[in-house]
Nucleic acid binder design. Structure first.
Lengths: 214, 214
DNA sequence: TGTATTCATGAATTAAGGTTCACTATGGCA
DNA sequence: TGCCATAGTGAACCTTAATTCATGAATACA
């Protein structure tokens, strides 16, 4: 017999509550609070209940990562797909990503750079890969239409992704001031620089445009 | 009474052997083999002996990191200090670093990107920072003499360091036999791209030169 | 209302390796 | 040769959370 809809709803909701408690804990104070017992209590369930919804701690956090990361990758993907020159799209994508990351600094820091358990760390790689993948598409477009220098798109995408992520980590550090104007300036610098390595000369004059709920 | 020279030598040598066993283990198969008991046996000493030389596992690996990293940072520092345009030095520094990293691919991956325990991961940050620091010096020089665009040297250095590190070890990093022509070509691409983001236009035509026991 | 099934509980267990320490071996020295 | 300081030993001990599971509660359905 099929499970009643009400009950199914309950299950889905509980799982969501656990996921959200996990996300919130990491967003608030990083991986040190990413303990099953703590998350369970925050979610209002027993420790053991977490294991009704997730195979393991690694599985739980893989899903947390997916939840958060897929949104960010989607934002970037939307910009990648958008109208406009590849150059402009690239700058906008990086700028938007940076601004969003700085907005949720603690979480972004945890997701990108904070030392954490190897198993969780491994799950982050997928996110980086997915992001680099989006960049790579843009790079190919720019190479194809002559906007970008003609080099290996995957290497180029890695360079670009590495550049802005590494540069972001500093400003994302938990101690850094979340000042908005300064943050935008930094994001602009990062976007400008990261994209710049691909530009044919002379480089276009571009002002980053924040897009998609930046 | 002072300890006899022979005996002191013995101590230094044993410590070196442990350090080297640790380095070798990581270079061979990464952090999963970075276990005290295993390292001890590889070094031909008992588990407990490791603790006569190192305070903790984290301390041991911090020293391993220092050992390897300081050499690499020194290589880069030498190029940074060398004669020549900032542009040429930058390309050479990245190229040399890349070629060396590809030569010790497994170790480089472990030191730069492989998921590992948080405590060890934290120690890696120093290395990254030191490297970025060297790049930053070069960036300042290039900005001062008008070779580079005028932006925040620290942000720029982070971008550059992030770019080549990610491209070297990232998920998309191309596989290539060390010292092969393909490897050199990739290193050249990485160096060219990473440095390119700083160049004023038109960009100089530069061929990377391998320096300092590249 | 009875009962089968599913879900929730949280204390007890497990696991994995880092760390300790009581003991032994060694080398320098008188 | 005997003594002492120091290095070496490795099995036992800890620590820290993740994970389990026996038990109880709740729900759906006849």
């Amino acid at each position: 017999m099929a499970i009643a809809a009400v009950r199914l709803n309950q299950l889905v909701e509980t799982k969501a509550r656990i996921l959200d408690a996990a996300r919130a804990a990491v967003a608030l104070s990083g991986w040190k609070d990413a303990q099953i017992a703590l998350i369970a209590s925050r979610a209002g369930v027993a420790t053991g209940s977490v294991y009704r919804y997730f195979d393991s701690k690694a599985d739980l956090y893989a899903q947390v990562l997916a939840l958060v990361s897929e949104r960010e990758v989607a934002v970037v993907a939307a910009i990648v797909e958008a109208e406009g020159s590849a150059s402009q799209c690239l700058v906008d994508a990086i700028y938007t990503f940076s601004v969003r990351a700085m907005r949720g600094r603690r979480l972004a820091y945890a997701l990108i750079a904070e030392p954490c358990e190897p198993e969780i760390d491994a799950a982050r790689l997928k996110y980086r890969a997915a992001l680099a993948d989006q960049i790579a598409r843009l790079v190919r477009r720019g190479i194809a239409n002559g906007e970008f220098v003609d080099i290996d798109a995957n290497v180029a995408a890695s360079c670009v992704a590495g550049a802005f992520m590494e540069a972001l980590v500093g400003p994302l550090a938990p101690e850094a001031a979340p000042d908005s104007d300064a943050a935008k300036a930094i994001a602009q610098t990062i976007a400008g620089l990261s994209a710049r390595m691909l530009f044919r000369h002379p480089a276009p004059e571009l002002t980053p445009v924040s897009r998609v709920s930046a």
